[in-house]
């Protein structure tokens, strides 16, 4: 999900997408995703300088996950964290299923993937460690 509605000069999401699934008219355009081509690899989540891209994946039988860029103190895999919406309000407790550290990321941006109830996949955009 690309949440980048403003015409700003920027193109790394489109330039780095291995599936060619992101369309950008020109560098000042707003990006759109061709979900037929998108493989959910999350390269765009890591490469977006504005941290404005999130992967929502409901393809598994085990349920849905949301992958977010996360440049804060990283949780651990299996840890229960607090899921937050776009306003930073608590939605529900969610579990971290995988993560990429800054070092793991080819684009220098850590990401966290959490298991999310289907009704929250379009809401959850941040997490907070419960300490």
């Amino acid at each position: 999900m690309i949440e980048c509605p403003q015409e700003i000069p920027c193109d790394p999401c489109q330039a780095n997408c291995p599936a060619g699934a992101i369309d950008l008219e020109d560098i000042n355009g707003t990006p759109t995703v061709d979900f037929e081509k998108c493989t959910g690899c999350s390269v765009c989540v890591e490469s977006c300088p504005g941290l404005a891209i999130f992967t929502v994946d409901c393809s598994s039988e085990k349920g849905c996950t949301v992958t977010i860029p996360y440049e804060f103190d990283l949780p651990e895999v299996g840890e229960e964290v607090i899921g937050l919406n776009r306003k930073g309000e608590e939605i529900s407790r969610v579990t971290v299923t995988s993560l990429k550290t800054k070092g793991d990321s080819a684009f220098d941006t850590p990401t966290v993937t959490v298991q999310v109830q289907e009704e929250h996949v379009n809401e959850l955009r941040n997490i907070r460690r419960s300490k």
């Binding site: 700003i8 000069p9 920027c10 193109d11 790394p12 300088p49 684009f107």
Partner: peptide
């Protein structure tokens, strides 16, 4: 921000 062929990202 900017263009990938410069320093974007």
């Amino acid at each position: 921000f900017g263009s990938s062929d410069q320093e974007a990202g």
